[in-house]
Write a protein that binds this DNA or RNA. Structure first.
Lengths: 147, 147
DNA sequence: CCCGTTTCGACCACTTCCGACCACTCCATA
DNA sequence: TATGGAGTGGTCGGAAGTGGTCGAAACGGG
């Protein structure tokens, strides 16, 4: 199974178009075709799932027996997602509704996350990478991971 | 399993290219080929993993059951990494995004760290080597190590 | 129902970037 | 001094990214 890896810069223009970086687009189109499902789990990012992958994720979401509040919130968000196609330049046209709900526009980073792509504001990525080192407790957690 | 050992000077030129020191490059290419994954765990350094090694590390990172905050931060950082190839001179082209986000440029040190290479600013390496002696507590920790 | 406004997909043109290639210097060794 | 490996710097063309126009379709109000 093809894994998405790597973070690349991109921009969302005034019309809401995002050009997926070539490296990620290759991985996407070779493995799954050019249909994707775009949605948001969290306010700071958009997620782009290849359609076949999304169908599995959706299955898993809906099959959960107990409708815990967190799950309900998630499903409500997902319902505002969109099934989209890449145009011939590999661009996604993100509908106005999604753009409004998720505050991503202008300079963004598109990053591979194993089974989907994430679109986040570049400023957010920068602040995460530049964040000062982890606390002692956090370092403790990572001990034994053999990184 | 090939272990990386040794610290060597290198420079990152204006285009973001780093020539891996020959000694380390031999160890890398002989053992694993010329595909690498470059990412940042901490703001002051880049890490270069041979692809086969990275796949193991990634597995270990993702398989941790409890998503502790420190782990989440780490994974988010890793998502901005890049899959790269060495050019025919053994140089890595570090993408602008990573260069911006991790403050490494100009004079650096490339050092072997068992299973990966680290790229840090040379000034940082220098200050560590010149650092004043350890505190009493720190010396205490080291007792019995037979160094 | 009709028309003005908005939205979106297709198409086109320009700019930027980066990866491949080449040229040169600096040492160490013979 | 000749030679080869290592490190450094630059160029150049094709690919990738960016920005715009135009027309069809969708929508809402009168």
């Amino acid at each position: 199974m093809q894994r998405f890896r790597g973070g690349f810069p991109a921009t969302i223009d005034a019309k809401g178009r995002v050009k997926l970086p070539a490296r990620l687009r290759e991985q996407l189109e070779d493995g799954y075709g050019h249909e994707v499902f775009v949605c948001s789990f969290f306010p700071h990012e958009l997620r782009v799932y290849p359609l076949p992958v999304w169908e599995l994720v959706e299955e898993r979401l809906l099959s959960k027996p107990a409708m815990k509040p967190a799950l309900l919130k998630l499903i409500e968000r997902v319902n505002y997602g969109q099934l989209l196609e890449l145009d011939d330049h590999g661009r996604l046209m993100v509908p106005a509704l999604l753009r409004e709900m998720v505050a991503v526009e202008g300079e963004v980073v598109v990053s591979g996350r194993i089974n989907h792509l994430a679109i986040t504001k570049r400023s957010r990525a920068a602040s995460i990478l530049q964040e000062e080192s982890l606390s002692d407790e956090e370092l403790e957690e990572l001990a034994g991971l053999e990184l």
